[in-house]
Design a protein around this nucleic acid. Structure first.
Lengths: 193, 193
DNA sequence: CCATTTTTATGCAGCCTGTATGTAACCGGC
DNA sequence: GCCGGTTACATACAGGCTGCATAAAAATGG
C-alpha cells in the first residue's frame, strides 16, 4: 500500500472493506442483529465512512446481496461449463443442483434466504434476482420448449417456481437434501412433453 | 363491558387487543417498521402490558403469525368442504388455489411471506407451518401415493416444495396469478403415476 | 376485609440509526 | 509547487426504541 492513494483507490478500498465486514457479520448474526458500529469497527473505519458510501444500512446490505448473487451465478456457470450438455432439461436440473451446492454455506443462506426478502421486499428482490440468477433458467426453459421436449407453459412464472423450490430445498436439513433433489427432479421431469 | 372483569377476561381482552393492533401495524408497516409504543397505543394499553403478556416484540409477532396461520387453514378447509372430492390430486390442487385466494390480502402476504422468515428463522417457521398448514398437504400426497395415482416420492419434502411454490406464486403480481396457477397445476400433474 | 397474586403503568439505562458539522486527503489549473 | 474546490472520512448530536425494574391498581381467596 502506497503512502498516498488516488481517490478511486481510497474509495474502492474502504467500500470493499465495508462490504466484506458486513457480509461476515450479516452472515453470522443477521441483518437486525448487526449494528453499524460493529460493521465500521470490523472494517477498520468509522460510521461516517459507512454513511458516506451507503445511504443507510439497507443499502449496504443490498451491496452484500448483489455480490453474493454474483458469486452464486459464477459457481453455477462454472459447474455448467464442466458438464457435457445432454439436453436442456438436464441442463436445468444441473443448474438446480449447482445452486444447492452453492448454498451449502449457512451464512449465505441466512443472507439470501432469510434476511433478503424482509429487507429488500419482494419487488426489489425479484428485480435483482431476475437480473442475476434467473435469466439463465428462463433461457434453459425456453430452449426446452422450443425444442419440443417440454410442455409449453408461461416461462417466467415457471422459472420463479423453480427458484422458489430450490430456495426452500436449500434450507432443508443436510440429511434431507437428497430427498429434496429427488423430488425436484421428479417435478421437472414431469414437465416433459 | 362490565365495570369489573375477572382476571381471565382482563387477560384475554388485552391480549386480543394487542394481537389485533399488532397484526394491523405489522401488515401496514412491517415488523421492523413498527414500534412497540405504536402497538401499545393502538391497542389502548401501555408498553408495560405488552411486555407482561409477551416476552418481547418477536413473541408478539409469533402470536400474530399463528393466528394468521389458523385463519388461512380455516379458509382452505372451508373451501375444500365446498367441493366434491374427485380424487386426491385434484384435492391437493384445490387447496393450492384456496391458499392463493387466502393470500390475496397484501398485509397477510407481508406478515407471512416477507417478515416471518426473517423474524422466526427457518426452523421455527417450518415447525409452525408443519403444525398448522402443511399436515393436510402431507395427508393428501400420501393418499395419492397410496392409491397409486401419484409417483412414490419423499412426502414431506414434496409438501415443502409445494408450499414454497404457492408462497412464491402468492407474491406474484395480480396479472400473473393465472399463469402461476397454470404452471403449478402442470407441475403437480406431472407427478401422476 | 386483608394478604397475596396477577395485571397494568411509569421511569430508566443503554444502544442504535441517521444526520449535521467539522477535518483531512486528493485533484486540476495556474 | 501552490491553491481553490471537491471528495473522502471522522466526530458530535438528536431522537427513538427496546427491554427491564419498580411502582400502582385490580382481582382473588380465605
Amino acid at each position: 500500500m502506497r503512502a498516498t492513494r488516488t481517490q478511486a483507490e481510497r474509495r474502492e478500498q474502504t467500500r470493499r472493506a465495508l462490504v466484506a465486514a458486513a457480509r461476515q457479520l450479516f452472515a453470522d448474526k443477521g441483518f437486525a442483529g448487526t449494528s453499524t458500529p460493529e460493521i465500521a469497527e470490523a472494517a477498520g473505519v468509522t460510521r461516517g465512512a459507512l454513511y458516506h458510501h451507503f445511504a443507510d444500512k439497507a443499502a449496504l446490505f443490498i451491496a452484500v446481496v448483489e455480490e453474493e448473487h454474483l458469486l452464486i451465478a459464477m459457481a453455477i456457470n462454472s459447474a455448467a461449463a464442466g458438464e457435457d450438455e445432454p439436453g436442456p432439461i438436464k441442463a436445468v436440473l444441473g443448474s438446480c443442483n449447482a445452486f444447492l451446492d452453492a448454498m451449502a454455506d449457512p451464512g449465505r443462506r441466512r443472507i439470501m434466504l432469510m434476511d433478503a426478502p424482509a429487507v429488500l421486499g419482494s419487488q426489489t428482490l425479484s428485480r435483482i434476482e431476475s437480473q442475476y440468477g434467473l435469466s439463465a433458467t428462463v433461457r434453459g426453459l425456453g430452449e426446452a420448449m422450443e425444442l419440443g421436449v417440454m410442455r409449453r407453459l408461461p416461462i417466467a412464472p415457471l422459472a420463479q417456481l423453480l427458484r422458489a423450490m430450490v430456495d426452500r430445498a436449500a434450507q432443508a436439513p443436510e440429511e434431507e437434501q437428497a430427498d429434496y433433489r429427488k423430488a425436484i427432479k421428479a417435478l421437472v421431469r414431469g414437465l416433459k412433453a
